[in-house]
Design a protein around this nucleic acid. Structure first.
Lengths: 141, 141
DNA sequence: CCATTATAGTCAGGGAAGCTTACCAAGCAA
DNA sequence: TTGCTTGGTAAGCTTCCCTGACTATAATGG
């Protein structure tokens, strides 16, 4: 069966995502997949919930409830946005930063494996092609 | 921000999947995303619900309830499996085959767009790399 | 042939995700 | 000031997908 390239991407992405979530669980971080996906979009200086919602293609209510769950779990904290009294910035708390380190480590391991399997040249080419594809496929550029 | 290759794949896949689902909706097929994903795995001669569950990485209960929804919608029919009295084969019904045609058409349009953007050579290379990656990333070969 | 185990599937119940509709409060612009 | 936009919350619902328990058929090993 000849699979569509998008399905091949889905398979690889699902594998990587599963690996990262497993690593987080193994390290004792009890994040759900949706929580982890949202948390991954939080910028170093904090991000507004509305912005997280847009990027993740969720309603702000959905994003809001995920942020709340992350806050209860100690992964993030919400602080007032100095530039807009209506808004609050969602920032990684210490617990969240430790989880991020675990995730980053697993991400790097995955990259090494893919690179070893494909060869450095072909892997670099793959990344380059995916980056170019993003131009026509990602509404957030 | 330098995104992980798996995230780039996620973005492209989400785009393609959204396009296909939108095309189905525009053509009057009221499938949910999960239903469509499962239906996409049904083979030309029918597939057992348990097998669909395995491939989609769902429990058989979850797959079963999606199949039931697809049956209610007229997309699939369940027929006895001649080779095993416990099992039933899930097959695309006429309505499902028409939906499949819409999905296939959109899939081909996406391939053409990606190929046009990347160039035939680079696109072929991308597909080749994704296929090789599948060897280490797909538990179903 | 019978006892055991594996496989295909269902039923019941529940939690998480994410939607719609409706709302409030702060900023912004006429 | 009036009204529009924007950041966020509240309530209620559907869909998805899980666990646990169960039935029925199939396959296997004495």
């Amino acid at each position: 069966m000849q699979l569509h390239p998008a399905v091949l991407m889905f398979i690889a992405h699902r594998h990587a995502e599963g690996r990262i979530l497993d690593a987080l669980h193994a390290a004792g971080f009890d994040l759900t997949l949706s929580q982890a996906r949202l948390a991954a979009r939080i910028g170093p200086d904090g991000t507004r919930a509305t912005e997280l919602a847009e990027q993740a293609q969720l309603t702000k209510q959905s994003a809001g409830s995920l942020v709340e769950a992350l806050e209860v779990g100690g992964y993030v904290e919400r602080v007032p946005d100095p530039s807009d009294a209506r808004a609050r910035l969602v920032r990684l708390a210490e617990h969240g930063k430790r989880a991020q380190q675990v995730a980053r480590r697993e991400e790097r391991a995955i990259v090494r494996e893919w690179e070893a399997h494909l060869g450095a040249r072909r892997f670099a080419d793959l990344v380059e092609s995916l980056g170019r594809l993003r131009e026509i496929v990602d509404p957030y550029q």
